[in-house]
Amino acid sequence: MLELRLVQGSLLKKVLDAIKDLVTDANFDCSESGFSLQAMDSSHVALVALLLRSDGFEHYRCDRNLSMGMNLTNMSKMLKCAGNDDIITIKADDGGDSVTFMFESPSQDKVSDFEMKLMDIDSEHLGIPETEYHAIVKMPSAEFARICRDLSTIGDTVVISVSKDGVKFSTSGDIGSANVVCRQNNSVDNKDNETVIEMNEPVSLTFALRYLNSFTKATTLSNTVTLSMSKELPVVVEYKIAEIGHIRFYLAPKIED
């Protein structure tokens, strides 16, 4: 038996909006520690890892580990029926073939339940090694989204270079080229507006902008985003989900032929 009650139901709606275009079907894994998901896009270039820790739920009951295969388009359709202020409860029976989403309005005067069929998904789980990253950039998530969107009007790929001077995003295409440099700044008033660069050694990697643009759909989940990079390794683009967990996107770099 599984019963997870999330008071801030809008978080789940936002999570689905952030991942449903990248991944079609995914297994949600439920254990004592939390509600999680790991899935790759169909071309195996990008991976999303979601964790909602059990202590972030108002009520969390998971009698045994459960993996529930869901079509994210259909799940998103159902969650769209929840109000932004609604409390969402996810319920499932062990070995059942469906999951129920229950939506309660804040004043408890409206309760809805939506039952969705589960599916068998043969998904591959990848081990992601713990890595010391050469450079970690924390910046406002809206700024990162803006840069990715702007540069994708010029080119298809972006070179992200971190040096002691800052982080540089560069692209080029048929009509020309563009560079955006963000320098480290410390905002006294608002930590969310800071750009903070931790660098052990300079790193420069090339990525497809269309994936980064897809990741930025998670911007509504967090005011800040963290980019972790090492030479010749996938970048990690992480959005913290207030008090409850994170969503991490991994993207394989492009390599010069």
């Binding site: 790759m40 071309s43 195996h44 270039v45 990008a46 991976l47 591959e124 789980h125 990848l126 081990g127 992601i128 090694p129 790929t157 090339t206 497809a208 390794l233 996938p234 991994y250 394989a252 770099p253 492009k254 390599i255 010069e256 032929d257």
Partner: peptide, 14 residues
């Protein structure tokens, strides 16, 4: 030109 690598190149199935 540049070519896109796969995540399978970096992460191993568990």
């Amino acid at each position: 030109g540049s070519s896109q690598t796969s995540l399978r190149h970096y992460f191993v199935a568990t």
